[in-house]
Design a binder for these strands. Structure first.
Lengths: 140, 140
DNA sequence: CGGTATCCCGAGGGATACTG
DNA sequence: CAGTATCCCTCGGGATACCG
């Protein structure tokens, strides 16, 4: 059977090029940005925390109030990740009791553009995806 | 102390608006596209599989050869997710033995743009992040 | 070839209690 | 206020073997 030629969108080519580039070298996980960088975005709370810090710099408990379901444990852990990756700054004020403020770094802000695009897509595609799931589950 | 005003980039505002919109309703996980849609992108293999299918339609074992580390089990599972979400089509050809081809749906292709942006960012930010990690770990 | 079916382990992450 | 310290349990995902 004959097959329709692929639409050659720029995005498709960009993606394909990148995969080729990665594959040309023997695959080294430590060299793969997707694994090394984007994995954290898949963590349960990272994106939400990034979004709250995108609104404005916030103190620990302010973030927690903005994302009510998170535990202190996971909030600390997620913020530490962001700080370690240089996406957010942590500043301690010597008040009593101490207050700590978190804010996005320039690098963290530079992520907001791409992230916003992806979230836009997620919202736009949400209905389609839910319908597709229903149809798939119905036909088992 | 006084604090610098925030740069009000479009992305920042878009992100902040969206978070506000989500928060206005009592948070319903089933209504949250980030949780419902983007979670799968955080799965270990989803993005890589999407990229291989972005190159061209492929048969099961072709995908596996392109992503050598994946097991048949996880490949099946990931492809099923994509199919269920309507991001990819699965077509069975009645050859002997049977051959099955997967290709991105239009919806799946529409994800390539945003995804490409994010991967661009990941590659561009990779060095910065690695340096930030080293510095953070050094100062313990 | 293109999958399922099991078994199993380690990490992600929740609950709770304690601390400087 | 802003965390640590434990305990515990689910579940993502690897290894292996089998099937139409």
């Amino acid at each position: 059977m004959t097959r329709l030629p692929l639409s050659n969108s720029p995005a498709r080519e960009a993606i394909a090029d990148r995969l080729n580039r990665w594959s040309s070298a023997p695959f080294d996980a430590s060299k793969c940005p997707v694994r090394d960088v984007l994995d954290h975005l898949g963590d349960k709370w990272t994106t939400l925390i990034l979004m709250t810090l995108a609104e404005q710099p916030r103190r620990f408990s302010q973030v927690q109030r903005r994302v009510p379901d998170i535990s202190k444990r996971m909030l600390t852990q997620t913020l530490r990740q962001l700080e370690r990756d240089g996406l957010a700054f942590r500043e301690v004020f010597p008040t009593k009791p101490p207050s700590v403020e978190y804010q996005l770094s320039p690098l963290g802000e530079s992520l907001l553009g791409p992230l916003s695009q992806l979230v836009d897509w997620a919202e736009a595609a949400h209905d389609n995806i839910r319908q597709a799931r229903s149809a798939f589950d119905a036909s088992n």
